[in-house]
Design a protein around this nucleic acid. Sequence first.
RNA 1: GGGCGCGUAGCUCAGUCGGUUAGAGCGCACGGUUCACAUCCGUGAGGUCGAGGGUUCGAGCCCCCCCGCGCCCACCA
Length: 896
Amino acid sequence: MPDFNMPKTYDFHQVEQRLYQQWNDAGYFRPRLAPGKQPFVISMPPPNVTGELHLGHAMFVAVEDLLIRYHRMLGDPTLWVPGSDHAGIATQLQVEKDLLRTEEQTREEIGREAFVERTWAWKAKYGGMITRQLRRLGASCDWERERFTLDEGLSRAVREAFVRLYEKGLIYRGTYLINWSPGLKTAVSDLEVEYSEEQGKLYYFKYMIAGSDEFIPVATTRPETILGDTAVAVHPDDERYRHLIGRTCLVPILKRTIPVIHDTYVDREFGTGALKITPGHDPTDYEIGQRHGLQIINLLNTDASLNENAGPYVGLDRYACRERLWADMQRAGLVIKTEPYLMQVPRSQRGGEVVEPMVSTQWFVRMQPLAEPALQAVRRGEIRIVPERFTKVYFNWLENIRDWCVSRQLWWGHRIPAWYCDDCEAMTVARAEPSQCSQCGSARLRQDPDVLDTWFSSGLWPFSTLGWPENTPDLRTFYPTSVMETGYDILFFWVARMIMLGLEFTGKPPFHTVYLHGMIRDGQGRKMSKTLGNVIDPLQVMDEFGADALRLTLLTGSTPGNDVNLSLDRVEGNRNFANKLWNATRLVVGSVARATASPVAPSERSLADRWILARTQQMVGEVNRLFSLHQYGEAGRQVYEFFWGEFADWYLELAKLELEQGEPAASDAAHTMAAVLDTCLRLLHPFTPFVTEEAWGRLREACQVSQHGYRPQGGWEQALIVAAWPAAVPEGALDQPALASFQVMQQLISAIRNVRAERGIDPKARIPAWIAAGEHATLLAGQRQALTALARLDPDRLQISSGGVQPAAGAIPIVAANIEVFLAAAQPVDQAAERLRLERELAEAMAQVARLRALLDSPFADRAPARVVEKERLSLAFQQEAVRKLEDQLALLRGQ
RNA sequence: GGGCGCGUAGCUCAGUCGGUUAGAGCGCACGGUUCACAUCCGUGAGGUCGAGGGUUCGAGCCCCCCCGCGCCCACCA
């Protein structure tokens, strides 16, 4: 048979890259505007510009590309905007590391300007890597609209947003307690702090009352902060300490005097019931300090060493200071005890080191005014979150939101557009660099050295990438976008902020649906980490199994919002599926090429043809329904199982018989095969774009070359990526008789195969059979060929009758689909074993009859919907018939 | 301290609107080599759906409680 240049094994290596190029060159990734059609738009979550592809990227590409390809096939003007994020901290860290390694210099040594230059160079070198890798996955995004958060347009958007917020009073600069990352030497936001439960100690010591031998016992987890204490607080009603309120006590070692105050915040039950107050280095102490007008002492330098306020401990690292101070206090007789204590240690999400609360002058975004509309948008249903349970999480966060510290003491990022006058110290906030001070007109201006949190620019992404603040055609056409698809881990970091900023600046929700996928774990459900060594590299997976296999695995192995344990076995299985698609296409293509007649109408075709066409329609309806419910994984599984389990395993086997028969049967079969394959390839394209496009191209070619080839409704499109998505047909239009008849065939054939395998009958042997088919006699008589081929029966010794049959002595009796079958075995069969089998089946059937009778006799018959009851009635009739048939056969067997 | 998710075959996971005999892939067992595919085909074994209670004619699915695992949020030193 000619192979039409289709190798026996699908070779994704020589297909994927070529097809991607073709799609891109043909301009399919650009939106095709269609008047009156609502555009479908996704803003890609921008990967870190210097990042490397990991499975999280693979996941979002799989899901987003699925949505994009689906909508493109629906004919919607479809746009997927790609881009990358400058990722301030991450990128700066990488470049710093590189600098240290190659030139043994720190960023401070080469200076800000040179460092930023170097980072741009780094971006130029490595920035393309991640986007190349996204292409390998098949991401069909519009690269002509690719954006980078630091490029000219987006920087302009950032400045515009900043100035507008500032002018509205929603951005302010002030000195407050923030989270300081000593390793990174920058402030970080609350979200960038993670708390890990760690074993620490609770230190108990004495706060001596000035001029007295009395003391207040106090407990702390961080003794070094004692040096910054500005009060000791007790509960106003606490009998133990009430008489001390208003007195002063002495800070250990430093001997500063501080007041004993009272505050109801203090928990009398915890520790000693007395609380040391360090407003400079603890969030609650800060608040208490504010209430009582306490002095704030900052103890730390930017690297978390102790500063001049620490007296004798100046210059020591925070932990060295902790030990030294405690030892000194011990010597001074101030120590009571220490005990083990499990505590929540704040650590930097990025660097991992312990974050110190510290008072510092920073920029903040006032969140409450922004949060309110963002809450409303979701409450009113203008934005829907999938899965819905995250709505609650979203509400909870926004309802308790605190101001967002947006300034970072980094060099890589959007410089804060604020300038300070050297002469009058006034601050000028402006969209472009001002030439003179807004207050005194001096030209001696210095720009604020800080940059903005990366998430500030990401928060503008859906509209900044489309041209905002300018009212560009893209912004008018494609904003608001449609779906925001991303991992649930950045719901607060990114999604919530996009909603807030989108509403603030455009007055519209930036998207109508938020679709959240889960995190990817290893085959055992563990987080992937370099130290565990269980990181699965998507590039390696694609090398081994192909991009389609990886995508299909991610899509069908997960449900929205739930984590996925990626197992390579599944990827391998899906690689095999791609190969199955390929080989089925080879068969179909060959068949189409040899067709020489025009096919008859579908309703005139063979039972198998009618059946598979009806099943295809059924499945198309199901897939469309599932898509509308966002159940993409289930939809993919349905097509998978249909294609392999029904189309390939049943239909194609039968179609081969029709092909052998010659015309016109062969052409009919070729036509049906092509139609079903075409539909499946369309449905699967969003899941496995490469193999489907390649196979579809072959199918299309074969059909077009043939005079009698199949032709889809509306004709062949240029490429599968832009082919029409199959529409559902109404349930009532289905060929129900074909579905029912074929089911009988399947049951019968399976039963015969089962007995043959169990009895060890030679799989190749064509054996005689006698079939008492009752009402199905006509059906089976018409399906002799199918029956004999799939059940391996001897066509010359197959007797089918509606009444009784006379099998040869020793034939094996079978009942399936209420049809009695007798198989002639080559060797004498074990009569006792057959009897046991029949008796077992009879017992089962009788049990079913009893169960169904009881059921139909119960309130069920009155209360359940008629449709459900009817189903059970039919089932009962069927089982009763089965009992009769089995009894007959047993009688026959015993009589022999 | 609050909130959420998960627990289904040996493993990894599906299970839609609650419908009465719970599915897939891998693995396992038995058998199969021309004619699309050994990345294949046929057959089979394997399940008290974490435990208990409730609602219902009917529960893997809804409600309550408990156990185990995981995650998120939160200012008890």
